[in-house]
Simulated assay, not measured.
Amino acid sequence: MNLYQSLGYLVLGSRLRRLSEGFLAEINRAYQIEGIDFDASWFPVFYLLSKNESLSIKELSAHTEVSHPAASQLITNLKNRKLVTSATCADDGRRQMVQLTDSGRELLAQILPVWDAILLAMDDVMANDAACQNLLPGITALENAFKSTSLSERISNKLNMELKAETHD
Protein backbone atom coordinates (compact mmCIF):
# COMPACT_ATOMS: atom_id res chain seq x y z
CA MET A 1 0.00 0.00 0.00
CA ASN A 2 1.49 3.36 -0.98
CA LEU A 3 1.29 6.60 1.00
CA TYR A 4 -1.79 7.84 -0.84
CA GLN A 5 -3.66 4.59 -0.30
CA SER A 6 -2.71 4.49 3.39
CA LEU A 7 -4.06 8.01 4.07
CA GLY A 8 -7.55 7.23 2.79
CA TYR A 9 -9.96 10.15 2.65
CA LEU A 10 -7.33 12.67 3.78
CA VAL A 11 -5.91 12.59 0.26
CA LEU A 12 -9.04 11.78 -1.72
CA GLY A 13 -8.82 15.04 -3.68
CA SER A 14 -5.17 14.44 -4.51
CA ARG A 15 -5.85 10.89 -5.67
CA LEU A 16 -8.81 11.98 -7.80
CA ARG A 17 -6.74 14.80 -9.31
CA ARG A 18 -3.86 12.39 -10.08
CA LEU A 19 -6.31 9.91 -11.60
CA SER A 20 -7.96 12.65 -13.66
CA GLU A 21 -4.67 14.08 -14.87
CA GLY A 22 -3.41 10.63 -15.83
CA PHE A 23 -6.68 9.76 -17.58
CA LEU A 24 -6.72 13.04 -19.55
CA ALA A 25 -3.04 12.63 -20.47
CA GLU A 26 -3.81 9.16 -21.89
CA ILE A 27 -6.82 10.51 -23.81
CA ASN A 28 -4.72 13.35 -25.23
CA ARG A 29 -2.03 10.82 -26.17
CA ALA A 30 -4.67 8.78 -28.04
CA TYR A 31 -5.69 11.87 -30.03
CA GLN A 32 -2.03 12.60 -30.73
CA ILE A 33 -1.35 9.04 -31.90
CA GLU A 34 -4.26 9.38 -34.33
CA GLY A 35 -2.85 12.68 -35.58
CA ILE A 36 -5.83 14.66 -34.29
CA ASP A 37 -5.18 18.13 -32.87
CA PHE A 38 -7.72 17.96 -30.05
CA ASP A 39 -7.43 18.51 -26.32
CA ALA A 40 -9.56 16.49 -23.91
CA SER A 41 -10.45 19.68 -22.03
CA TRP A 42 -12.48 20.75 -25.08
CA PHE A 43 -14.66 17.63 -24.89
CA PRO A 44 -17.66 19.09 -23.00
CA VAL A 45 -18.09 21.96 -25.48
CA PHE A 46 -17.65 19.73 -28.53
CA TYR A 47 -20.00 17.12 -27.11
CA LEU A 48 -22.72 19.66 -26.31
CA LEU A 49 -22.34 21.37 -29.69
CA SER A 50 -22.48 17.97 -31.41
CA LYS A 51 -25.96 17.58 -29.89
CA ASN A 52 -27.10 21.22 -30.32
CA GLU A 53 -26.60 23.51 -33.29
CA SER A 54 -25.79 26.42 -31.00
CA LEU A 55 -25.76 27.18 -27.28
CA SER A 56 -25.17 30.33 -25.28
CA ILE A 57 -22.11 30.60 -23.07
CA LYS A 58 -24.50 30.62 -20.10
CA GLU A 59 -26.05 27.34 -21.29
CA LEU A 60 -22.61 25.80 -21.83
CA SER A 61 -21.61 26.94 -18.35
CA ALA A 62 -24.76 25.46 -16.80
CA HIS A 63 -24.51 22.12 -18.63
CA THR A 64 -20.82 21.66 -17.80
CA GLU A 65 -21.22 22.99 -14.24
CA VAL A 66 -18.31 25.42 -14.58
CA SER A 67 -18.32 29.14 -13.92
CA HIS A 68 -19.39 31.53 -16.66
CA PRO A 69 -15.84 33.03 -16.81
CA ALA A 70 -14.32 29.54 -17.18
CA ALA A 71 -16.73 28.67 -19.99
CA SER A 72 -16.10 32.03 -21.64
CA GLN A 73 -12.33 31.49 -21.45
CA LEU A 74 -12.64 28.06 -23.08
CA ILE A 75 -14.84 29.50 -25.84
CA THR A 76 -12.30 32.28 -26.45
CA ASN A 77 -9.56 29.65 -26.75
CA LEU A 78 -11.65 27.65 -29.25
CA LYS A 79 -12.48 30.84 -31.18
CA ASN A 80 -8.77 31.65 -31.44
CA ARG A 81 -8.30 28.20 -32.97
CA LYS A 82 -11.20 28.92 -35.35
CA LEU A 83 -13.13 25.87 -34.08
CA VAL A 84 -16.15 27.80 -32.82
CA THR A 85 -17.76 31.10 -33.57
CA SER A 86 -20.29 33.16 -31.71
CA ALA A 87 -22.98 35.57 -32.75
CA THR A 88 -25.38 37.77 -30.87
CA CYS A 89 -28.70 36.06 -30.23
CA ALA A 90 -31.49 37.49 -32.39
CA ASP A 91 -33.97 37.38 -29.48
CA ASP A 92 -31.62 38.73 -26.78
CA GLY A 93 -28.71 40.96 -27.74
CA ARG A 94 -26.94 40.19 -24.44
CA ARG A 95 -26.55 36.48 -25.26
CA GLN A 96 -23.74 35.13 -27.40
CA MET A 97 -24.69 31.96 -29.24
CA VAL A 98 -21.75 29.59 -29.82
CA GLN A 99 -21.57 27.12 -32.69
CA LEU A 100 -18.97 24.99 -34.40
CA THR A 101 -17.25 26.43 -37.46
CA ASP A 102 -16.66 24.32 -40.56
CA SER A 103 -13.21 23.47 -39.13
CA GLY A 104 -14.85 22.56 -35.83
CA ARG A 105 -17.32 20.24 -37.58
CA GLU A 106 -14.44 18.61 -39.51
CA LEU A 107 -12.60 18.07 -36.24
CA LEU A 108 -15.77 16.66 -34.67
CA ALA A 109 -16.01 14.10 -37.48
CA GLN A 110 -12.42 13.02 -36.72
CA ILE A 111 -12.94 12.71 -32.97
CA LEU A 112 -16.27 10.86 -32.92
CA PRO A 113 -14.60 7.47 -33.63
CA VAL A 114 -12.09 8.21 -30.85
CA TRP A 115 -14.95 8.79 -28.41
CA ASP A 116 -16.42 5.42 -29.38
CA ALA A 117 -13.02 3.78 -28.90
CA ILE A 118 -12.62 5.45 -25.48
CA LEU A 119 -15.95 3.97 -24.37
CA LEU A 120 -14.96 0.50 -25.63
CA ALA A 121 -11.52 0.68 -24.00
CA MET A 122 -13.00 1.79 -20.67
CA ASP A 123 -15.56 -1.03 -20.91
CA ASP A 124 -12.58 -3.41 -21.21
CA VAL A 125 -10.91 -1.88 -18.14
CA MET A 126 -14.11 -2.13 -16.12
CA ALA A 127 -14.92 -5.67 -17.25
CA ASN A 128 -11.55 -6.95 -16.03
CA ASP A 129 -11.96 -5.74 -12.44
CA ALA A 130 -15.21 -6.04 -10.51
CA ALA A 131 -14.19 -3.27 -8.09
CA CYS A 132 -13.81 -0.84 -11.00
CA GLN A 133 -17.42 -1.42 -11.99
CA ASN A 134 -18.50 0.55 -8.91
CA LEU A 135 -16.45 3.61 -9.84
CA LEU A 136 -19.03 5.71 -11.73
CA PRO A 137 -21.94 4.85 -9.41
CA GLY A 138 -19.68 5.60 -6.45
CA ILE A 139 -18.64 8.99 -7.85
CA THR A 140 -22.29 9.86 -8.52
CA ALA A 141 -23.26 8.86 -4.99
CA LEU A 142 -20.44 10.98 -3.53
CA GLU A 143 -21.42 13.97 -5.69
CA ASN A 144 -25.02 13.65 -4.50
CA ALA A 145 -23.93 13.32 -0.87
CA PHE A 146 -21.85 16.52 -1.18
CA LYS A 147 -24.83 18.32 -2.74
CA SER A 148 -27.17 17.29 0.07
CA THR A 149 -24.81 18.51 2.81
CA SER A 150 -21.49 20.11 1.97
CA LEU A 151 -18.37 18.39 3.20
CA SER A 152 -17.23 21.53 5.01
CA GLU A 153 -20.53 21.58 6.90
CA ARG A 154 -20.11 17.93 7.82
CA ILE A 155 -16.57 18.61 9.06
CA SER A 156 -17.76 21.57 11.14
CA ASN A 157 -20.49 19.41 12.65
CA LYS A 158 -17.93 16.75 13.60
CA LEU A 159 -15.65 19.35 15.15
CA ASN A 160 -18.52 20.87 17.11
CA MET A 161 -19.61 17.44 18.37
CA GLU A 162 -16.03 16.74 19.46
CA LEU A 163 -15.82 20.09 21.29
CA LYS A 164 -19.13 19.43 23.05
CA ALA A 165 -17.95 15.96 24.07
CA GLU A 166 -14.73 17.44 25.52
CA THR A 167 -16.60 20.06 27.55
CA HIS A 168 -18.88 17.38 29.03
CA ASP A 169 -15.99 15.16 30.12
Rank of each mutant, 00 (worst) to 15 (best):
E26Y: 05
Q73S: 14
T76K: 08
T85N: 04
E166R: 10
R95D: 06
F23A: 09
A109H: 11
A145Y: 12
T64E: 12
Q96L: 15
V125L: 15
H168W: 01
I27E: 06
L120W: 04
D37T: 04
V11I: 03
E21Y: 06
R95H: 07
N157T: 08
S14P: 01
R18I: 12
P69M: 05
D124P: 00
L60D: 11
R29L: 10
L3H: 06
L55S: 00
Q133V: 00
D129G: 01
A130G: 01
L112Y: 01
N77P: 00
M126K: 07
M126D: 06
A130K: 09
A25E: 13
R94S: 13
H63G: 10
I36W: 07
Y31M: 12
G93S: 13
G104D: 03
M97A: 00
I75A: 07
S103M: 03
D39E: 13
N134P: 02
Q32K: 14
S67A: 14
N52S: 08
E153T: 11
A145W: 09
D169G: 15
L24S: 05
P113T: 00
Q99F: 06
R154Y: 08
Q5W: 07
L55Q: 02
E153V: 05
L112W: 00
S6I: 02
T101P: 07
I75C: 12
I75L: 12
T88S: 14
V125D: 10
F146C: 14
S72E: 11
L119M: 04
A30H: 06
N80R: 14
G138H: 08
K82T: 04
S54C: 02
A127R: 06
D92N: 15
S56W: 00
L119Y: 05
A70D: 11
L108S: 01
L19R: 05
R105E: 15
N157V: 03
R17I: 09
F146L: 15
T149R: 12
I75S: 05
G8N: 10
N2Y: 10
L135Q: 01
Y4C: 04
L74N: 10
A25Y: 09
T149H: 06
G22M: 04
E34K: 13
L55R: 01
K158Q: 10
Q99W: 00
A40I: 04
F23E: 08
K79H: 11
M1H: 03
L135V: 07
I75V: 15
L49I: 01
R29T: 05
M161C: 02
A40W: 03
E143R: 10
P113V: 02
V66M: 15
L142A: 14
P137Q: 08
T85G: 05
L108Q: 08
K58Q: 11
E59I: 04
E166L: 12
V114R: 06
D92A: 05
Q73A: 15
N134H: 13
T76C: 02
R95K: 14
T64P: 01
T149W: 03
L107D: 07
H168A: 07
P137W: 08
L49F: 01
D37G: 01
D39C: 06
T85K: 09
L112K: 14
L142C: 11
N160F: 13
I33H: 11
S50W: 06
T88A: 13
V66R: 13
K147T: 04
A165M: 07
T85R: 08
W115M: 09
I139D: 02
F38K: 00
G93P: 09
S20R: 09
I33S: 07
N157W: 05
N52F: 12
L120D: 12
G22L: 03
D169N: 12
